[in-house]
Design a protein around this nucleic acid. Sequence first.
DNA 1: GTCGCATCACACTG
DNA 2: CCAGTGTGATGCGA
Length: 724
Amino acid sequence: MEQGLGSDSNPSLGSIDKSRVLDVRPLRCLVPVLPNPPSMSSVSTPQPSPFVCVPPTGPFPPGIHPFYPFLVPNDSQPNRNPHPSGVSNLPGNRAFGNSIPAPVPLNSFRTPTPQANGGTRQSERGSEPVVLDDDGYSDSLNQSGQHVSGFSVHVTDTEDASNTRKRRGRPRKSRVGIGDNNPGKSKDEHGDSFDVESLVNRFLTSYKLKQFGDVRRANGDKETVDSILLVFDLLRRRLTQLEEVKDMSPGVSRRPDLKAASLLMTKGVRTNNTKRIGHVPGVEVGDIFFFRMELCIVGLHTPSMAGIDYMNVKITVDEEPVAVSIVSSGGYDDQGDDGDVLIYSGQGGVQRRDGQMFDQKLERGNLALEKSLHRANEVRVVRGLKDIAGSTGKIYVYDGLYKIQESWTEKNNSGCNVFKYKLVRVPGQPEAFTLWKSIQQWKNGTAPRTGVILPDLTSGAETQPVTLVNDIDDEKGPPYFTYIRNLKYAKPFSTPKSFSGCQCIGGCQPGISSCPCTQRNEGYLPYSSLGVLLTYKPLIYECGATCTCPPNCRNRMSQAGPKVRLEIFKTNDRGWGLRSWDPIRAGGFICEYAGDAVDTSTLGDTGNEKEDNYIFDATRYYEHLEAVHDDSTKVPFPLVISAKINGNEARFMNHSCSPNVFWKPVLRESTNESYLHVAFFAIRHIPPMQELTFDYGMVRPEQGDRGRKKCLCGSTKCRGYFYS
DNA sequence: GTCGCATCACACTG
DNA sequence: CCAGTGTGATGCGA
């Protein structure tokens, strides 16, 4: 079994094959580092370094023309076209409010974003009516709060609040949905129909979980685990979104996590169904989870609440329970100070209703732990961590296998007996919990991060620093470039759409039908309150300069810069790469692809463009994991970005054929112009220090074979090559 | 087979 | 921020 092998945590030197390296994209980083460019000599950086991080002030490449993001051979043949409606049309004309003041630019003090414009905006496309594409959810398309009259925000608010209050005391409507007599569409009292069942089926089909055999149910592998967790989270996020906007939707519970898991499990979509001692195939040490139900559906720890999971094993004739896994959630006073030792308290002794304490009994989980002590079997340990990186919830880290060394009883403060178990980590496993502790120390300064070349590549332009690190060899960094926060356009890419921004006072909130930004996103805000991407739509409409909502509006997620602590690091064999000190949950925003927008019309004309390996090309085919279409390729749209001269951390993200990051186009309005941006989000939960990668996409036939490179991503699904 | 019960959740409120 | 509380899913064991 290969689970439990760390991914990239401990780079071992020595085995670097330079000849292989030369094929790889970031390798052009190894071209001799330029000395400080003369023009930048006046700018000093904290440390000697090839980097000079200055505000971009330079002239823009000549000859840039506007881009039209959606040259879509559009929904003309939705049934036959293998790429149905990947992107929707631009919004149609709306009343244009030009007197709305621009919002305060984010971080304007540091890296001013020169308003790249001045060009005449062109329109090749007439203003077409809004044709929002339909992923099959049109039935759930929000007749968005048409029960809300839309007179004013405050009316909506109070109604929302009263609904919320009502909700608390609502009569039980247990197990709506699957097991019910009416499993299909159900209607609520407003006449909106909502179809959880087909939602689930669509996800399952997309991720090939529809025919889920007993084999995969009994034993997982990485792919199975990944796709189950992925569908769980897509489902959960979707349910969250539905719940936010519509109170009391049938089939939508206040606990989308429970609901999503329940939907999957009743369909038999779970893996590692049978309990076992030791590792669970498909789950690696260090993997992170955000809900107990996630542990359950991948078979890591099945009880939904209890902390001790155990199974009966036959000794001779008798059976006896042995523990297979525990979750340490901090609910009892477990001690986890030493990263490899855990003092775990037994279960029971607390009356949940009134909090009354009793002596714990040697039964159930406690008995199983006791037996496991004597049988010396390995026990999986999941550590629940609180208050990590601003996220309010808990994060569960699979910390690998432990053995129980001893047990005893103690009196707690109430004078009742509590069982205690001392667990010691089996040596030789990849770092997991101890890595978290190290990162904590890097952040609070009690221990230095080794190999730091530059503490903050952004020179403070972002709220989170981006560190440049090399702890494997003596290379001093990639070649010079200028750090910029956003994608720069020489001209706006499209006709100004007469779009008047929202006037949401404290930021856009779900369920407010009068908010034009919500409307453009088809009635739902694309992000959760925690900044997790909720929408599956191919294009995100964020609030722009004509909106009066504040910069911290949740519909400005990609404008606010990274929320996680990123570092650019030297990989073993693929040049420089990007990773995060913080855990990133599925759907979490990572960063934008900053750079210079390239005029696609001149591409290929000149024949020999200068070597530019920092290209992001949206016109390629991408397997978009968020896409729920049967055909997962995407309609190309003409946006090409070069991050060779100007860019941000995204330019260091390497390619992988099984990536953990995907991108989505984001549209922002600025005064009377539109700008398309590219934002990166996590496909799945990403543990700290795991390299961030995305799929560079497949070039279309007419683009030739240029830029084809040998792929070293090492995944089982590796195509063997990629296009830089 | 089913049903009550215990359980180191989670979200929301005050 | 904390405690309190309401509504939970699962699997065990009767």
